[in-house]
């Protein structure tokens, strides 16, 4: 998306680093912070009695660009926001060296529940207009408070359940897997009561690798085509749905309509303008599942053992 600004803004990157995290004044181990994935997962949150997480934040912009530009009264505002709780707080950071700001962002337990976005904007007076946003943090951070969250990357949840004993799945108790969704999360549920499923998927032996990958690809095709249809159902007008639905659509639409821009593709899918849509969805899901590689590998492995069996 090319934006045209009515005043000069920074072209260089503004990077934010979370240097430390404290939970009610107790320093958390640095391993809760992943610089690479820009996430903080303060894991020991199983306890319910904490009040506030304080994050030590540092922001850097290119000093030479700031010196050379027409910006006056620079200040940096760090924000912590979460759509689910409509929480949005902004705190002014302190400038240390030119082009470098540090400060603390607070996350209050009562105001947050899931994924909190920590970001910020650089504000200046430009051409006499105060309060202009001249840059935003290039890669915002996410503080993930969801219980049980361990991975730093955002993904579809996976659970094991014995379908025969779980009332939620009584309607599909003989299936090997199913998919459940809410506004917040999409979950792949694997049937632990399905003979051999777990054994194959979690097999550590290299010999099972091809089978394991072919099975995983099959699960993935089911998962992605289901999620796609669920997501499309929730599209309203021209707007992209929020959360996992939007992410699923953004990943799959380019494979469904390769010569449509994402917006056009969304419009097309909602209006059902093109026929044979389910076949294309299947294609996009197979691509997400990396089907050609997994299944191809499986078939090759069958051929390999062939001659020895004869």
């Amino acid at each position: 998306m090319k934006r045209i600004m009515p005043y000069p803004v920074l072209t260089g990157e503004v990077t934010m680093t979370i240097r430390e995290a404290r939970l009610d004044d107790v320093q958390l181990p640095y391993s809760v912070i992943s610089e690479q994935d820009r996430t903080v997962v303060p894991r020991p949150l199983e306890r319910d009695d904490w009040e506030v997480i304080r994050l030590g934040v540092q922001v850097r912009a290119q000093r030479y660009e700031l010196d050379a530009g027409p910006w006056l009264s620079l200040s940096f505002l760090a924000t912590a926001s979460e759509r689910r709780t409509n929480a949005h707080s902004a705190v002014k950071l302190m400038m240390g060296q030119p082009g470098e700001w540090t400060g603390e962002v607070e996350i209050h337990r009562d105001d947050h529940v899931g994924r909190v976005q920590v970001s910020g904007q650089l504000v200046a007076t430009v051409d006499g207009v105060p309060g202009r946003v001249i840059a935003t943090v290039n890669r915002p951070w996410t503080v993930d408070l969801r219980p049980g969250t361990t991975a730093h990357r955002e993904s579809i949840d996976t659970q094991w359940a014995n379908f025969a004993e779980d009332s939620r799945f009584s309607w599909c108790k003989t299936d090997p897997w199913t998919v459940t969704t809410t506004d917040e999360t999409a979950t792949l549920v694997l049937n632990s009561g399905f003979d051999g499923l777990r054994a194959v998927l979690e097999s550590p032996t290299a010999a099972d690798r091809a089978t394991r990958e072919a099975l995983a690809a099959q699960i993935a095709v089911d998962l992605w085509s289901t999620l796609f249809n669920e997501a499309v159902y929730h599209v309203e007008g021209h707007d992209w749905p929020e959360g996992w639905r939007g992410q699923v659509l953004r990943r799959m639409l380019p494979d469904i309509f390769p010569d449509y821009s994402p917006d056009d593709a969304l419009h097309e899918i909602v209006n059902g303008g093109t026929g044979a849509i389910q076949a294309r969805v299947l294609h996009a899901a197979a691509k997400q599942a990396r089907m050609p590689r997994s299944l191809g590998g499986f078939i090759r492995s069958l051929r390999k053992v062939g001659p020895e069996d004869e």
Partner: peptide, 24 residues
Amino acid sequence: VKPAESVESGGTPTILRDIVDLEP
């Protein structure tokens, strides 16, 4: 450098980890 608590990814079999990724 090991994480404070083991990051056994909530029962997600390793083989499925890549295909459930939602990062853009």
